[in-house]
Design a protein around this nucleic acid. Sequence first.
DNA 1: CTCATCTTCCGTAATCCATTCGGTGGTCAG
DNA 2: CTGACCACCGAATGGATTACGGAAGATGAG
Lengths: 160, 160
Amino acid sequence: MSLGTALDRTDDAILRLLQKDARLSVKEIAAAVGLAPSSVHGRIRQLREAGVLRGAHAEVDPRALGIGLEALLMIGLSKHERDTVDRFLDDAVALPEVRAAFLVTGRYDVIVHVAVRDTQQLKDLALDHFTSRPAVTRIETSIIFEARRRHALPVYRAAG
Amino acid sequence: MSLGTALDRTDDAILRLLQKDARLSVKEIAAAVGLAPSSVHGRIRQLREAGVLRGAHAEVDPRALGIGLEALLMIGLSKHERDTVDRFLDDAVALPEVRAAFLVTGRYDVIVHVAVRDTQQLKDLALDHFTSRPAVTRIETSIIFEARRRHALPVYRAAG
DNA sequence: CTCATCTTCCGTAATCCATTCGGTGGTCAG
DNA sequence: CTGACCACCGAATGGATTACGGAAGATGAG
């Protein structure tokens, strides 16, 4: 199940740096971790081939795109069969307004993070694409006042 | 309030491409949007200076880091004063296990997305850093079975 | 209509970087 | 000791990023 090669501390450091800023040059990373650029390049290539490094995504200011409101839709489903749930998640994430969709345990079944222009669009989105679905039993809407993120994941080393 | 320069369709396209893959070369983007590389470079530089493009972050496979479990902690607070809330969010996002923290309306006040090794660590994290806080009135834990993301934000153009 | 001005784009050239390759030292098994 | 293996390094090169000067089109005043 696990990947072929275990990560050492240098790999961890490289991953940490690239999660903070994917535009760092190999040279800069090399200086930070104390290796030659060619060595760092080899490690990054291996991490990519092993599927550990999956890509990079630019971060854009939501307000510059006209996004004035983000919200979490907390949704209960009537049917919990795999097909129903998978289909629901597929359809949700296909909507451009949807940033993320989580299948979860607890009081709700699915939590959907959406980014819209204003409350009007939020209402339309909820009514047209979620409330109207037969599988949906209820929705609670939580408007996001503030969001803070950490881009670097924690590292739990395999061998302790 | 708004930024000095409005975005046109070419800017939208550039931002969309970079959100999908921040490692795209200027040359590739230029070919995709039908401009010369130097022109695309100028636009990207302007977008960066205007604060629209905020940076880029590498995506890493959580399982490669030993992350076996992610969860959403849905938290109610007793006090809703600015200082209490800000402090709570600051402290939450300072924990390495925390990926994101949202201040929201609705049944809960704060929703925290965490990434841990296993249920044991989730229990310790919840009890040591959340349940034990005086401002916290209750916590509901939702384990994430599946997460789907869309890395490109929608664009709502200012002029319609 | 005409001129001035501003904006956007392009082509070119210089610089910088990513990437590859051959070589070296260190480690471990036999 | 000897050989294989592994990670790293340093140099070379191919390609990209980046800066610069000029051309083309849009806009507005006279």
